[in-house]
Structure formats: C-alpha cells, structure tokens
C-alpha cells in the first residue's frame, strides 16, 4: 500500500552519491546498460509508431498498399474526409457521453465505497479486496457477461425488471439506438469503480483523523466535515483519479466491441472503435490514423494536466 500513499515517502532514491562522480566513463557505460534495452524498446514500440501514425495520416492507404509500395502523400485529405464524415459528430458525442457518464458514476460510487470502508469493521479488508475483481477480469469477459445479462429475451436484467413490474415490455438494451450507449456506460462503470475505490481509499487514509476529531469537537456534522476537510485535502488525489480515468476511458475498446461492435447504427461508436473500424474493417489505414491522432491530441492535453498535478512530487524527488 505504500505506493498508493499520497504522502511523500521517506525512501527516495538513495543513490550512491559518493561514487557518482568517481565512476568514470566505463562505470557510466555500465550504468546506462541497465536502461538501454528499455530505451530501445520505447523508441521502437512507442516513438516509431507515433511518428509512423502521423505519416500514415497524410497518406492514402488501401488494401493494395500492403502489396505494392503504394501509399501516396495526400496532404490533409484524410483529416478532411474524417471530419466531414457524418459518423465523426456521432463518434465525438458518444465519446464525450461515454467518458463523462462513466467517470461521474465511477467516481461517486468509488468515493462512497471508499468512505464506507474507511470505517474498518470486521472483514472490511477482505470485502474491499473482493470488490477489485471487476477491474482484474479481462474486459472481453465482462463484456460477454453483460451481453448475456442485457439479452432482450432471456437476459436476467429484463427478467428482473419485468418480474418487479418496473417495465411493461422487455427493453432492447443492446439493439436499440436509445439504450445501447447507456447500457455500455453502465457496464463500463462496473469495470471502473474498483480503480476509483482503491485510489480514493488510499487518499482518504492519508487524511489525519485528528482533523476530524477537532472538527467534531467544534460541532461540525458529517456533511460539513466531508466538505470542509475531506474534499479539500483529497483534491490532488481526485484530480489524479479523474484524469487517469479520463485517459483510460478514452481508450475503451474491448467492452464496446464485444457488447455492440459500435452499433446499432453507430449508436455506440466512439473515436476509438471508429478508428479501428476505418483501419481494420474498411482497410483505410490513413483515415484510421487520422482519427487515432485526434485521440492522441485529446489524451495529450489531459496527460499534460496529469503531469502538472503530480509535478510537485517529482520536484521533491528531483531535489532529494
């Protein structure tokens, strides 16, 4: 749990300071040999793909491009085609709704559960551990389970709702354009709650209990204590959980693919699934790359915000 702490840990990198300068060239080479493989890996499997993807987005790709060396430069054509495609607006809107809907409920449920498990009762550790299961399951598994739960005729959800007389007719969860996106969001909320729970729980752990005791003595009620103590002190952790959640949610692919494949009629198409469809179903890797780059741009904005929010901890480390 120490890694989850939001407190600065005492164990910064205790470098062998004395021998740092004395090592000489050979020693420095030996030290670099520890990181070199990862650096090469990062160059080959992150830097190269990003640059290549940028290039591809300015080229015209077809199935034939893989056999002859034919992927001519077409300037901004791919971007123009993508942005003027009617699916673009749908995909952007779905991405925003999917992301905001998922994050909001994941966060509220995660925070509620984290606050509840703060109480430390018998079995609280075990129960909290069990709640992590949805996060550990392969998304394809969760998606398959929800697909059967959502089944219109035989799914347990409709059977429950009908049995309790909450609905008169079975709801076509995944086959109607009105319900498919909410259904996908609900499944994704289920997947994401544990992540929020874990990080927010460790954040709550770091709030000194003496503050609550002092506030209680001053006559502050639970809600006031939450608003005046918990929320302000939890702010950095909240920022991190929301930004990481956002970056992860933008990437969600597996769950939507197995639930709906982006359908019906693009009702659950997000930028990620659309990019995949353009490349791997229509074999237009140029347009797929263009949509992918738009995703990178969005993720980058939030990644920089994320880095800014953890900058202080790095600065501390840099000085240590």
């Amino acid at each position: 749990m120490t890694t989850a702490s939001t407190e600065p840990t005492a164990s910064g990198p205790l470098s062998t300071r004395g021998r740092r300068r004395g090592g000489g060239g050979r020693e420095r080479l030996v030290r670099w040999s520890f990181v070199l493989p990862v650096v090469v890996f990062l160059l080959l499997f992150f830097c190269y793909p990003i640059v290549r993807n940028l290039m591809m987005s300015f080229q015209e790709w077809t199935v034939a491009s893989f056999y002859e060396a034919g992927s001519p430069f077409v300037g901004l054509d791919n971007y123009v085609d993508v942005v003027t495609d009617p699916v673009f607006g749908t995909a952007v809107l779905n991405t925003v709704l999917f992301t905001v809907g998922s994050l909001l409920f994941q966060f509220v449920l995660g925070l509620g559960l984290a606050a509840f498990f703060q109480r430390h009762f018998p079995l609280s550790g075990v129960l909290r551990g069990l709640l992590l299961l949805p996060w550990l399951l392969p998304l394809v598994v969760s998606g398959a389970v929800f697909r059967w739960i959502y089944d219109e005729g035989f799914g347990v959800l409709n059977q429950l709702l009908l049995g309790l007389h909450l609905v008169g007719d079975p709801i076509p969860w995944l086959s109607s354009t009105d319900h498919a996106l909410p259904a996908a969001i609900i499944a994704n909320i289920w997947v994401g709650v544990p992540f929020n729970l874990v990080i927010l729980y460790s954040g709550l752990q770091a709030v000194p209990t003496s503050l609550y005791e002092a506030a209680a003595l001053d006559g502050a009620g639970p809600w006031q204590r939450f608003r005046k103590i918990t929320l302000p002190l939890l702010r950095p952790v909240i920022a991190i959980v929301l930004m990481l959640g956002l970056i992860y949610t933008l990437k969600v692919f597996d769950l939507i693919m197995i639930l709906t494949g982006g359908g019906p009629a693009n009702a659950t198409e997000t930028l990620t699934t659309w990019s995949f469809a353009l490349s791997f179903e229509e074999f237009d890797f140029g347009e797929g790359a263009a949509v992918g780059n738009i995703l990178i741009a969005v993720a980058l904005v939030f990644a920089l915000l994320y880095l800014r929010s953890i900058r202080d901890s790095f600065r501390r480390e840099g000085e240590s």
């Binding site: 990181v35 990862v38 650096v39 990062l42 499997f45 992150f46 190269y48 793909p49 990003i50 290549r52 993807n53 591809m56 491009s65 893989f66 970056i247 933008l250 990437k251 692919f253 990620t272 990019s275 995949f276 490349s279 791997f280 890797f285 797929g288 790359a289 992918g292 780059n293 995703l295 990178i296 993720a299 980058l300 939030f302 990644a303 994320y306 880095l307 790095f314 480390e317 840099g318």
Partner: peptide, 25 residues
C-alpha cells in the same frame, strides 16, 4: 533519468489503437 520516468508515464497514455494501426503494416 527523471525525463525517462516522465516518458514512461506518458507513453502509457498513448491509445492502443494508434499502436495497432501503425504497427500493422
């Protein structure tokens, strides 16, 4: 090294679809 740690943090945020798209060829 600190820059490298930041790079490692950042690359986790690259959407997988971008890698799939560009590594496929």
């Amino acid at each position: 090294t600190l820059a490298l740690v930041l790079v490692v943090l950042l690359v986790q945020m690259v959407p997988g679809i971008v890698m799939a798209n560009s590594l496929y060829p």
